[in-house]
Amino acid sequence: MVSSAGEGVRMCHICPYYTFLSLKVSYSETKEAAKHIGGEQCHQSTHRFLLLGHKQSKMEHGSYQDQSASTFTLPDEDHTLANALRFTLNQDPRVTVCGYSIPHPSEARVNIRVQTTGDPANEVLKDSCQDLMLLCQHVRSTFDQAVADFKNNKGSESE
């Protein structure tokens, strides 16, 4: 189902839109992850289908036996959040594999696959979101400070 299409990017034979963005895994692992990232068509009987809330909810596809591997569906999100999360997830030592895909361009959702060394995947994803938030907060405060400094300097120069 999955073939290699250059370094880091893997494509599916069946659907032209179905690509993986830089999964840091071996071929067999990618196949395993690919099966899950693909979404609905690969549900196995052991997998739970969690629908938390209504339309704005996140869906989690994982298995009851193994909490350490899950696929999360984020509705109304795109590369903006998914790629940033992929970065923070990959930087977490508890994560063995992670990647994301947008199953179809006309569908506003993104699937994020997280496989961990043992910790529950949703906890790890939550922590990654937290990391990204803290990172953003630091960017914001540093930026505001830099702008304020620049304005002050400019003010003193023109005097």
Binding site: T80, L85, Q130, L132, R140, F143
Partner: peptide, 24 residues
């Protein structure tokens, strides 16, 4: 422009917060 950038960072934070809320 400086307000725009601050707002943009804020929006990314909000996105993360939304995911955290739904996951917990």
């Amino acid at each position: 422009p400086e307000v725009l950038f601050t707002e943009a960072v804020q929006i990314l934070e909000d996105k993360c917060e939304r995911v955290i809320t739904v996951l917990s």
